[in-house]
Nucleic acid binder design. Structure first.
Lengths: 114, 114
DNA sequence: TATTCTAGTTGGTAAAGCATACTAGTAGGA
DNA sequence: TCCTACTAGTATGCTTTACCAACTAGAATA
C-alpha cells in the first residue's frame, strides 16, 4: 500500500473495518494485519494498525486481554466494548451513505452519451 | 455535516468527486457546493471546497477562467486538465477497489448466523 | 552468544476536511 | 446616502489519521 492515493481514502474506513473484524472474532495486531491483506487491502503497515488499535482502546471502542503465544511474546487480544458496538453500527450506516452518494456522482460518467 | 464520522471518510473521495463533476460540466465553487448537496453530501462547507479547488489548481489537475456573474462578483470557472483526466480515471479505479474490499469486510456482518 | 521471527510502543510527518476571518462586488431598504 | 444581505473567493491555522522510523522485548535456533 504505502503513500498511494488510496491511503487518503482509507481514513476513517480502516477503524470501521477493524470494528467489524473484531466483532466477528477477537484478535491481535499481527493477525489483523494479515486478515486485512486477505480482504484486498494491500499490506497494511504495522505503523498504521498498531497505533490505530491503541487509539481505539483509549477511546474505549475496544478492550484488550494479554494471552500467551506459542511462538513469541504475549499477544494483546482485542474485543469490542458496548461503545464499540454502537460505533460499528454507526460506521456501517455512514459507509452505506457515502457509497450511495459517490455512486450518484459516478453516474455522471455513464450519461456522457447525450 | 461538520465534525462527524463521515468527514474523515470524505478524505480523498471529495477530490475525486470534484474531478468527475467538473468533467461532466465546468463550474465554479459556489455552484459546485450546491451540486454536492444535491448528491447527498450534506452542506459541504466553503472552508472545505474552496481551499480544495485551489490545491487542485496548484497540482494542475484543473484550470480556471474568470467570468462575469449576473448577480455578484466574478466567478472562477474550473475545467479539467489532461492531468486531471488521468487522475479522475485513477480515482474511479481506486474507489471501485476500496468499495470491493470494504464490501468483503462487511460480509462478516451477514455470516453471523452459524 | 548472536540472530531471527514475533509482538507491540512511541514520536513525528504529511494530507485533507473544516472553521474562522478577511476581501469584494451587487442589490435593496431605511 | 448608508446599511444590510447575498454572492464569490482567499488566507491561515486546527484536528484527525495514515504512515514511517526507531525502539523495546520475548522465544527459538544456530
Amino acid at each position: 500500500m504505502a503513500q498511494t492515493n488510496t491511503s487518503q481514502m482509507l481514513k476513517g474506513v480502516l477503524q470501521g473495518c477493524l470494528l467489524i473484524i473484531l466483532n466477528d472474532e477477537p484478535s491481535y495486531g499481527y493477525a489483523i494485519m494479515q486478515r486485512l491483506t486477505g480482504f484486498g487491502f494491500g499490506d497494511v503497515p504495522k505503523g498504521t494498525i498498531y497505533p490505530l488499535l491503541l487509539t481505539m482502546e483509549r477511546k474505549q471502542l475496544i478492550a484488550s486481554t494479554m494471552q500467551q503465544s506459542p511462538d513469541g511474546p504475549e499477544r494483546k487480544y482485542y474485543h469490542l466494548t458496548a461503545t464499540g458496538q454502537a460505533e460499528r453500527q454507526s460506521f456501517i450506516a455512514d459507509w452505506h451513505n457515502l457509497q450511495h452518494n459517490v455512486t450518484q456522482v459516478m453516474a455522471l460518467e455513464d450519461e456522457q452519451n447525450d
